[in-house]
Write a protein that binds this DNA or RNA. Sequence first.
DNA 1: CATTATTGACATTATACATGTCATTACGAC
DNA 2: GTCGTAATGACATGTATAATGTCAATAATG
Lengths: 149, 149
Amino acid sequence: MKTDLLYRLIWMSRPLMQAAEASVEKGLAGTGLTVRMRAVLEILHAHGDATVPDIARKLDINRQYVQLMVNETLGAGLTVQRPNPRHRRSILLALTEEGRGVIDQVIERERALVAAIGADIDAADAETALTVVLALVGKLKHHAGKVEG
Amino acid sequence: MKTDLLYRLIWMSRPLMQAAEASVEKGLAGTGLTVRMRAVLEILHAHGDATVPDIARKLDINRQYVQLMVNETLGAGLTVQRPNPRHRRSILLALTEEGRGVIDQVIERERALVAAIGADIDAADAETALTVVLALVGKLKHHAGKVEG
DNA sequence: CATTATTGACATTATACATGTCATTACGAC
DNA sequence: GTCGTAATGACATGTATAATGTCAATAATG
């Protein structure tokens, strides 16, 4: 295995992430959304109503910060609080009509962009890439748990 | 092209980056280095003496922040300032003996880790992954420069 | 020589989180 | 039931990684 190849692949993750986030940000122009508000709406869009801690676990960040993000979506009228039958204090968050409309539109726009970008990328290659990246993440996380001599 | 595949690949960049940076941080234990000091030393290691703006351009962050990072390496005795024959005020930064020793060791340790991780990853697959990722970054950057309808 | 760009140095602001605390509420073991 | 423990909301504070602003000194260019 050419180690250098893997090394370069690993460290392309930062430029890729930055480019992806920049694209998302561009796509949000005119919607009034911020990137972090979009993240909340996307979770609700994908998984339905959720509590703040639910969303935090899905985003893999702490609940306190998610609370901020959620408060912004509430303030913008994109989400509403609903009573949670399973817990009196733990409120469920749900998309409003407006929130659903906005996130639907944003996601569709992003889907179209990815489709355009992927037009001349071979599907098998993309699958290979995803497999490799998933393996890398798994191995890196595993090794990080160990001591390095 | 299955858009969903690409979408997932793109957004694995964040976990990959986080896992990679966590590994680097682990690997720095005992060296007294911080991640950002390591970044400075790595540039000097790879490209030789450089000015602060040089390093900033290579790291793709602004020179003011790099100045902070560089000052830390100076303070730790890992780098020294050298007169720049091409500019009286623009000082060249160079590794000290100690700095070179530390960064050599860190890089070798990381190389070994990547080699271990890559042991059962097919080289051709890794190459494919790198190609795909490079293409994605290029296309995303390109599209970000345009208006999205 | 005049203009413009680059650099060092330092201060301020922004973003994206993590951490700490405390009262309230729910849940499981007994 | 009740008792201990965990989850939650709410709010305050801290931290890492930057970007941005400013200004004087110097260099490069026409």
